[in-house]
Every structure is written in structure tokens, then in C-alpha cells.
Design a protein around this nucleic acid. Structure first.
Length: 225
DNA sequence: CCCTGATTCGC
DNA sequence: GCGAATCAGG
């Protein structure tokens, strides 16, 4: 297996999305977890909450004066850009007598700060049937759209990075090919594909013997692994 | 043990 | 450049 643009794109996307190297490797197929990590490093991607590095201790890193302010600011005192300190504690909390002490709920400080789940199907499209497709997907990753537009050739094509739940995810061409992209048409509401490709994806089962020529599967068939 | 990512090093 | 082997923390 070689690192094609598409595979690298997927690697980057998933890596930055928080997927583990194992997940990425499994998704890409044909590569090991180590290969993914190695590639990620070579690409300049790095770190992220790594269990091993998390235990990094601070040693002799004296940085008491973080005041490298090269910009000589004139008489324009900044109006406190970063206030918002935690409400510490209001000195004295007037306890209402010795009774009627309504025990404030401990409130288990739950923070929905879950890691983004990046679930990319084989080839980068999300599979779902007409019947079962609803809640799980919406959490559209608040991915930040970056100026990543490397390939001018496919500038007007729908790339893996352009997929959303509003555009047709039908793959055009094959992953690995330089012009591989996705349909990108407006989806048939409720489906991951546009009307035309829904017709391709969801075909009524015909009686035996009356089969039509093989409907082209995405990518030309399931991946062999 | 399992998992994780980091690093090394022969290819 | 690649990735298995190895290392090291959780």
C-alpha cells in the first residue's frame, strides 16, 4: 500500500479529528498502526493527547517572564481582553439561619467535552439505509474549516473534506485516483445521496432471472482486505 | 494483559 | 520515505 493523496487526506482528517492510530489504520486498511503513526509524524502531525507523553514532567523550564512583547504599544491600554475569572467564592455566604439549609445539588460537573467521533466509512462516505439513519450522525463534527485546498485540479470537485449531510456522497471515480471526488449534488432529503444516486443505491429486489446488469457499487466493489 | 502514541533504525 | 520493533505510560 502506498500513501496516496486520498489516504493521506483521510489520515490527516481522522488524526486531527481525534481518532486513534489504530482506528485510522483499520479504516485505511493495508497499513499497521505503526505505519499510521510513522506517517503522521512524517507529515508533521503530532502529539495530541498521547497517554505516554501526558506524563511529561516539567523539568528546569524556567519561564517566569513570558513577556516578549515586541509591539510597543502606545497609550492604548487594552480593556482587559481576558477577564472572566471563575467566580471564586463570594467571601461570605450568608447561611440562612441554622435550619432550612437547602442542600445545593453537588452537580457532578459533567462536561460534554467528549472527543470528536470521526466515523468515516470505507472510502470516506457514510453508509446508511433509508430506514435507519437518523440521530447518530447529526453531531456534525464542529470541524473547523481551514484553508486546506491543496489540489487546484479538484478545486471545484467535492472532496472528502467537503462532505456534509447536505451533499450527495456518491463517490465518483476511485479512491487513489487524482480526480477522485464525490457527487456533491444536493441530497435527496433523508438520504445520503442525491436523487439520481439514490436510484442507484436503493434498487428494488427483482425476481430471480429478471436481474439487470450489475449495478455499479461505490468504488467498484467492496474492499478486499 | 490490554490499550495508547513516540522513537528508533534497517530497509 | 516506509514501517516493524521497540519503548514507555495508562
Amino acid at each position: 500500500m502506498s500513501w496516496t493523496d486520498e489516504r493521506i487526506a483521510t489520515l490527516k482528517k481522522m488524526w486531527e479529528g481525534g481518532s486513534t492510530a489504530s482506528q485510522i489504520a483499520d479504516e485505511l486498511g493495508g497499513v499497521s498502526r505503526n505505519a499510521v503513526i510513522g506517517k503522521a509524524h512524517r507529515l508533521g502531525l503530532k502529539s495530541r493527547p498521547s497517554p505516554v507523553k501526558a506524563a511529561e514532567k516539567k523539568k528546569a523550564a524556567p519561564k517566569p517572564k513570558p513577556a516578549p512583547k515586541p509591539v510597543a504599544k502606545k497609550a492604548a491600554p487594552r480593556p482587559a481582553p481576558t477577564p472572566a475569572p471563575a467566580p471564586a467564592k463570594p467571601a461570605a455566604k450568608p447561611a440562612p439561619s441554622a435550619d432550612a439549609a437547602i442542600p445545593s445539588q453537588p452537580l457532578p460537573d459533567k462536561r460534554p467535552d467528549l472527543p470528536k467521533i470521526v466515523s468515516v466509512g470505507p472510502g470516506g462516505f457514510l453508509r446508511q439505509g433509508p430506514g435507519d439513519q437518523q440521530p447518530p450522525i447529526p453531531p456534525a463534527p464542529p470541524r473547523r474549516l481551514v484553508p486546506a485546498k491543496p489540489s487546484p485540479e479538484i478545486a471545484d470537485k467535492t472532496s472528502l473534506l467537503d462532505l456534509s449531510d447536505k451533499v450527495c456522497r456518491w463517490p465518483m471515480g476511485h479512491p487513489g485516483e487524482p480526480d477522485f471526488h464525490f457527487c456533491g449534488e444536493a441530497v435527496n432529503p433523508g438520504f445520503p445521496y442525491c436523487v439520481e444516486h439514490c436510484g442507484r443505491a436503493y434498487q428494488a429486489q427483482l425476481p430471480r432471472g429478471a436481474r439487470r446488469p450489475p449495478p455499479p457499487l461505490p468504488f467498484g466493489g467492496p474492499r478486499v482486505r
